[in-house]
Computed example of a mutant assay.
Amino acid sequence: MDVPVGEGAHGSRADRLVMAAVAFEGSEDIAEARRLARSFLTDLQQVHGVPVSDRAMGGVQLVVSELVTNAQKYAPGPCLLTLEVNEGVVEVSVWDSEPCLPIAQGADPGRVGQHGLEIVMAVCRSFEMHREPVGKRIVAAVALADDPVGDEASDQVC
């Protein structure tokens, strides 16, 4: 797996764009996608000096796992995972070939399964879905740092 990583040329270390992208084709790649996310965030801390909270570390891995799982389950062919850091957030973007946008179901503790999108939307700062000329792209943003205010929102993963 070849993972390109790039940096912008301006600003402080925390302001520079850092990104990685990789294509996946099989269900065994879901665990690999989580490992990529963990490695990406570890490098972000150790190589680039950008602080990453434990919540962000877990939250990004969870979002990556859920979005790649959905792409593998509902879309034919490969999916593309992109992780980008910009202005204190990690944008997790997953493209797949299925043009239909997913529909998040309402909370139902009695429902078995199909909670992935619901979980992703609950733990992210922002969540977007876009149709592409081919397929769709799901983008979820996870804050790198915990909420400094310490209010109720800080109990969430991001």
Rank of each mutant, 00 (worst) to 15 (best):
A9E: 12
H10S: 03
G11F: 00
G11W: 01
G11I: 01
S12I: 12
R13E: 15
A14N: 02
A14I: 11
R16P: 03
R16I: 02
V18A: 03
M19T: 08
A20M: 03
A21C: 14
A23E: 15
F24C: 05
G26T: 14
G26K: 10
G26W: 12
S27T: 05
S27G: 05
E28T: 09
D29M: 04
I30F: 03
I30V: 15
I30E: 12
A31Y: 06
A31N: 07
A31W: 00
E32L: 12
A33W: 06
A33S: 13
R35T: 13
L36V: 07
R38F: 03
R38A: 12
F40E: 11
F40S: 10
F40N: 06
L41H: 00
L41Q: 14
L41V: 04
D43H: 05
D43S: 11
Q46D: 08
Q46N: 11
V47R: 15
V47Y: 07
H48C: 00
H48A: 12
G49F: 02
G49W: 08
V50G: 03
V50M: 04
P51N: 05
V52Q: 07
V52Y: 06
S53K: 09
D54R: 06
R55A: 04
A56G: 09
M57Q: 15
L62C: 04
L62I: 12
V63W: 05
S65R: 06
E66Y: 01
E66R: 01
E66P: 13
L67E: 06
L67V: 10
N70A: 12
A71R: 00
A71H: 06
Q72G: 08
